[in-house]
């Protein structure tokens, strides 16, 4: 990990690595953690109400707060193994060899540290808080870095929606994995059609012209940049391929960014509903089985609603089945007692 220390908290174009490259390094680190099975935590840190602060006090305060937060993150994490970068208004911090509990301690340190700071704006001192979403790889099974990022971002959103100034550790891995799988399937389903009928763009040159021209222009640029001769065609081809791969990755990131930005309040509602669907999926499987059973016994119709009692009611496999049975009995007795009191007694006592 020490090789990454120089990549910490780099974001501007003057720096050695771009945010996309640091994210690539994070992906590499994540893959390594998955392969060698060591714990790793991603913290997605966001400054609360940053836009409003910027509107009120200008972009200077924004830079001041960002700088202070990066400083705080550096001091709160181990310099040797924390990797961070700016992504939009969020800061990503990847901390390998750390369990979720350790990340909670670290997050608390950052929250406390930020609360203690004051910023000077036009002679007035202002306090700023942050929210943090956390995700870890301690969960069984394989999943991608992007899932980790989405889970952490979801945690940040919950933290912000709850008023900010808090750390939320999200566990929505399954939800985002399923969502990603669905998106991949949709893209794959849509791809052949797109290939068959590319969308015409007004004023754009024909596809064949682009295909013919791009390698030629790219090759010339690379030759100029690296001083390659006509004999270095193998090296040129390799560099060309790397450039194209890198460009595609950048385009993919940009596309993802645009998609994220286009999500609105409706999307939030859809996600809430999808979460509920995920939670209910097991019950639905059981319900289908129960409906099948009911179909085979056509003479006995217990009603659809009754089937849900079978599916969602108290199962003998429930770890607290005895306790719950006892509680049901107590509720029932209390209601019987209540009926008796109502039926017989005066209504003045509580």
């Amino acid at each position: 990990m020490s090789s990454f220390s120089s990549a910490q908290f780099r974001g501007s174009q003057k720096d050695l690595f771009t945010p996309a490259q640091i994210q690539h390094l994070m992906r590499v680190e994540f893959d390594r953690a998955q392969r060698y099975r060591y714990g790793l935590v991603l913290l997605v840190v966001g400054i609360d109400r940053l836009e409003q602060l910027q509107d009120l006090y200008g972009s200077e305060l924004r830079d001041q707060v960002h700088g202070a937060l990066v400083g705080l993150l550096k001091s709160a994490t181990r310099a040797s193994d924390a990797l961070g970068c700016l992504l939009d208004d969020r800061i990503l911090v990847l901390v390998p060899h750390t369990p979720p509990e350790g990340a909670a301690v670290m997050a608390k340190r950052v929250l406390d540290g930020m609360r203690a700071l004051t910023f000077d704006c036009d002679g007035r001192s202002t306090r700023v808080t942050v929210s943090i979403g956390g995700a870890h790889n301690a969960r069984k099974g394989d999943f991608a870095f992007d899932t980790l990022l989405e889970v952490g971002t979801a945690g940040l959103k919950v933290a912000r929606d709850g008023g900010g100034n808090r750390y939320v550790h999200s566990e929505l891995y399954e939800f985002f994995e399923k969502k990603r799988a669905r998106e991949r399937a949709d893209q794959e389903a849509a791809a052949p059609a797109a290939v068959r009928a590319p969308m015409p763009i007004a004023g754009a040159p024909a596809a064949a012209a682009i295909g013919d021209g791009v390698p030629h222009i790219l090759g010339e640029k690379i030759r100029d940049m690296f001083g390659l001769s006509e004999n270095d065609s193998a090296l040129l081809a390799k560099i060309e391929q790397e450039v194209v791969t890198s460009a595609l990755r950048e385009m993919k990131l940009e596309l993802e960014k645009v998609l994220v930005e286009s999500k609105s309040e409706h999307q939030r509602q859809i996600e809430t509903l999808e979460r509920r669907i995920t939670k209910l999926s097991d019950s639905l499987g059981m319900t289908e089985a129960e409906l099948q059973r009911a179909l085979t016994q056509k003479t006995v119709d217990p009603g659809v609603a009754s089937i849900y009692k079978t599916v969602q009611g108290l199962s003998s496999n429930d770890v607290q089945v005895q306790l719950k049975k006892a509680l049901m009995s107590k509720i029932f007795e209390a209601n019987v007692e209540l009926r008796k009191k109502i039926d017989t007694g005066p209504q003045s006592t509580s």
Binding site: Y308, K309, Q312, G313, L314, K324, M328, S329, I331, F332, N335, V336, R339
Partner: peptide, 15 residues
């Protein structure tokens, strides 16, 4: 609703 589901049928009948 969870309580209603978990409540034995005979209790409901009784009431």
């Amino acid at each position: 609703l969870k309580i209603a589901h978990d409540m034995p049928a005979e209790y409901w009948e009784h009431l």
